[in-house]
Amino acid sequence: MRSLGLLAGTGAVILRFLQTVGEVLVLLWQAVRESRAAPRNVDKILAQMAEIGNATLPIASLTAVFIGGVLALQSGFQLAKLGAEENLGGLVGLSMVKELGPVMTSLLMAGRVGSAMAAEIAAMSVYEEIDALRTLDIDPVRYLVMPRVLASLLALPVLTIYVDVLGWIGGALVGTVNPQINVSFRTFFDNLRQFMEVRDILDGLVKAMVFGVTVAIVCCYVGLQTRGGPREVGRSVTRAVVLSFICIFIFDYVITRLLI
């Protein structure tokens, strides 16, 4: 009997998961369809992009410099032991561009902007504002979701390039100031240029775009699903951020595998 209950429970969880995935995909499809209305909603898209930039830039700058620096510190010492410290630029540069840049930027964006998207839309759901939009014959997907998805799609690659560059600078600085590593700015960037191909940068930007859209759509979905009151708004924010993180990690693996 107990094993049957367990089976039913597992089944229910799987069904719920599949239903959520399906609903998110439907919302994404609706947002894509509503993108026709993008030219008329440029003001909303730009406002969302500004919001993403404003909220993410300061913390992303700080994180980028330090991640680049620590990466250079960790690998610089190992490389110096092998006498291969001149390869520091390529190592830090590629790590930032292909992996750390897009992943870190989208995680930060999920925490800073995704949470705000989920909170705003969840509050709108709870306080009947979404119903009010519908009664005014304004499609919430066109009015709320589409501008956020497009803004994330456009803003994340730009932010990622910025983070990549700051990460390189952080790495180069650490390489220069540490006598044990002792890699000059010039050596760092020469090596970086030698290893880096346009393809590597594009791979990172593809990730950034996918992650950006994922965070926006997941956070909008969770917000729109919210029912109840202030407590549920809080729960939705946590749920949206956690779901975004999980999706970013899974998609990171999948995209990396596909692009190798």
């Binding site: 306080y127 009947e128 504002e129 009010a132």
Partner: peptide, 9 residues
């Protein structure tokens, strides 16, 4: 609407 449901933004 009962709450007014004005758009707060």
């Amino acid at each position: 609407f009962q709450s007014g449901a004005l758009f707060s933004s």
